[in-house]
Amino acid sequence: MLQDQQIDNATATANRLSVRNIRKSFGELEVLRGISLEAHDGDVISILGSSGSGKSTFLRCINLLEIADEGEIWVDGEQIQMVKKQGKNIPVSSRQVDHIRAELGMVFQSFNLWSHMTILQNLIEGPVHVLKRPRAECIAEAEALLEKVGIAEKRHAYPAHLSGGQQQRAAIARSLAMKPKVMLFDEPTSALDPELVGEVLRVMRSLAEEGMTMLVVTHEMSFARNVSNRVIFMREGQIDSDGAPETMFSDAASPAFRQFIGSFRG
């Protein structure tokens, strides 16, 4: 038993991200009912599911915007220390929470760029003030990142003056500036006009090709199918099916998943 635990922990240490049996309730409503996931280095995992299946909550539990009631989370071999209080998990150290969050990049559906700062200021905010790195270095890196996502000319503009697609690309660059171990995307294209979706997906695709470990909650079937190397389908707070896109998008898929993608084709 003890040995099992040690072997188990050894895999958790080896993986980029390891989530064990996460549970989360909001009042009476149980949103996550025991979810586990292992992400290796370079994995690009698409998480699909209808709204209310708990996929966004799952992502928010990983970077501790919500604290799961039960379960373990390991990021790059480091376990988040929790203590039980009235049957629910509470993080032991807020310092560790901040440190873990700094290692996980989060991209939101609604971009959430800080509206009082220019794009460049948004990018260097974390590296300078959280990681306490030299400013000049951070600016140079931030400019390279903006070049990469294709909005270098907007670096002195404020978020409100950018289109949705540009804002989301800036938000991705902001997360990348922290040099995260894993990137979490929470429906990054859902708030965008259809013609702006492509530019954001292109950036995400090139990130995947560079070997970034990514967890993507999305409704973009083409991304799930063509870019990710693993697809997870969530249903009613649990993982319904999980596999490579080739098997998931074949006849071998679960009936629930087939029905789900069927609804997308209309």
């Binding site: 609604s110 800080w114 902001r174 922290m178």
Partner: peptide, 18 residues
């Protein structure tokens, strides 16, 4: 203040004071 901007700050690892 849009709630998302506060969340983004949390997500990047800023502590309360910061």
């Amino acid at each position: 203040i849009p709630k998302g901007e506060l969340e983004a700050a949390e997500a990047i690892g800023m502590h309360r004071g910061l």
